[in-house]
C-alpha cells in the first residue's frame, strides 16, 4: 500500500511524504504538533473529540486519530514524525506505534528487528510482490 502517485509509487508498503501528502495532511500534522505542549496534551486526553474539533480536519482524519489507525493516518497525509506525538501522548514507544502499520504484532515486529530487521529482498518494487 502506498498513497503516492509519482516515480516512487512503485515501492511497496511505503508512502513518501511529498507535496500531495503535505497538502492533505497540513491541519492533521499541525494538530499533532500542538501535542508538544503539556497543557494541550491534557485537554486532548480529557476530551479527544472536542479537542480535535479545534482543527479543520476531515471526518476521516478525526476518526483515524480516535482509532489510532496509523495506516489510515499516513494515507490521509499524516507524517510519522508528527503522528508519533499522538502515540507518545499515549505512552507508546515509537516501535510500538510503527509496528501497528505492519502485518506483525508489536512482539513479532520487535523480534524481526532483533533478527536484523526486514530484508529489502522482495521489498523494493511492487512488481516483486505480485
Amino acid at each position: 500500500m502506498n498513497s503516492n502517485n509519482n516515480n516512487y509509487s512503485d515501492i511497496p508498503g511505503t508512502t513518501v511524504f511529498d507535496g500531495n501528502m503535505a497538502r492533505k495532511g497540513f491541519h492533521l500534522n499541525q494538530f499533532c504538533m500542538s501535542l508538544m505542549n503539556a497543557a494541550n496534551r491534557e485537554s486532548f486526553k480529557q476530551n479527544e473529540s472536542a479537542y480535535l474539533d479545534r482543527y479543520p480536519l476531515t471526518d476521516a482524519q478525526k476518526q483515524a486519530v480516535l482509532a489510532r489507525d496509523f495506516t489510515q493516518l499516513i494515507a490521509l497525509g499524516g507524517n510519522i514524525y508528527y503522528l508519533v506525538k499522538i502515540s507518545s501522548c499515549d505512552g507508546l514507544s515509537v516501535a510500538a506505534a510503527v509496528s501497528t502499520m505492519t502485518d506483525l504484532s508489536t512482539e513479532e515486529y520487535l523480534d524481526m528487528m532483533r533478527n536484523g530487521g526486514r530484508s529489502p529482498e522482495g521489498n523494493r518494487y511492487l512488481k516483486e510482490q505480485q
Binding site: 502506498n2 499516513i74 510519522i80 510503527v98 515486529y109 530487521g117 526486514r118
Partner: peptide, 17 residues
C-alpha cells in the same frame, strides 16, 4: 542509517547497503 518508520514495509534494514 537504514530505517523506515511507516507503512507495511516498516522495519526495513539493509545491512549490505
Amino acid at each position: 542509517m537504514s530505517h523506515q518508520l511507516l507503512g507495511e514495509r516498516a522495519g526495513l534494514i539493509n545491512q549490505p547497503w
